[in-house]
Amino acid sequence: MSENVNVGRRQVLKGAGALAIGAAAGLVPAGKAFAARGNAPRWGFIVDLRRCTGCRSCTVACKAEYDVPLGAFRTAVYEEVQGKFPNAEKQFLPRLCNHCEGNQEDKIPPCVKNCPEYPKDRRVFNTADGKKIRYRGGATYKRPDGLILYDNDLCVGCGKCIEACPYGARTFNKRLIAGKDASKNGIAKCSLCQHRVDQGVAPACVNICPPKARIFGDLNDPGSEVSKLVKEFGLENKRNETTLLPAENTVPMLYYIDPKGSLTKLASAKKKFMGNEAWVDQIS
């Protein structure tokens, strides 16, 4: 499916001459270039809060990509008005799975760790140069390139991963029957559009974002835009300011460029994360 998306697009663009080729190149994020190098990439995602206009293109593009059922969101924008008139301001906070690295001790993200199927499942990740990286997972697993993915075939529908995620990034998919227990539902969560990324195409939300507030790429590639931004804004060194809920020690690979300190200001948003309340994208 994803392959065809990519090929189809290029086929049409081929005929358009130089102009089209330029554009086609623009469609392919840094990951493709990396894949040729062999090692697993380390996918990074940056939300630039200076750019987000709260337009919800990302939310709807994601709905459309997966036909996410009503009531579930794989990505959502949270907004909040703060301060007193006339100095009030409105903050936007786009949220998606943080694709956490896991704490320093075991490097296993909490959602993966808490899956009852972990670490039963043996998985293999094929790198572009043909190497195989072996790793373990459950119904939820972290791929060596950093993506936290979900395999419904292995899911018992217990919801422990939902409870384990401090961010509210997971919710039950009420249309999906859990693979191992027909009486339960499976999970909806962001996959960073693995089916597109594996073909060198940016995630749907990145592709659509009009003000380019969402940036995706390979942190192992020093030439990628994400690497440059990580360097420019010291995103990896100042995790307390650039990631959500640093105290949870989940080590997100989702960074925020946030010069105005919105993350710390969004007090009630934080509350919602803490309560494991699943996201709802709603403008009130």
Binding site: L13, A16, L19, A20, A23, G26, L27, C55, R56, S57, T59, V60, A61, K63, A64, N207, I208, C209, P210
Partner: peptide
Amino acid sequence: NSIRSRGKICAKGA
């Protein structure tokens, strides 16, 4: 390939 929208649409479009 659009010089106007440069590959972008909004939520309503999607």
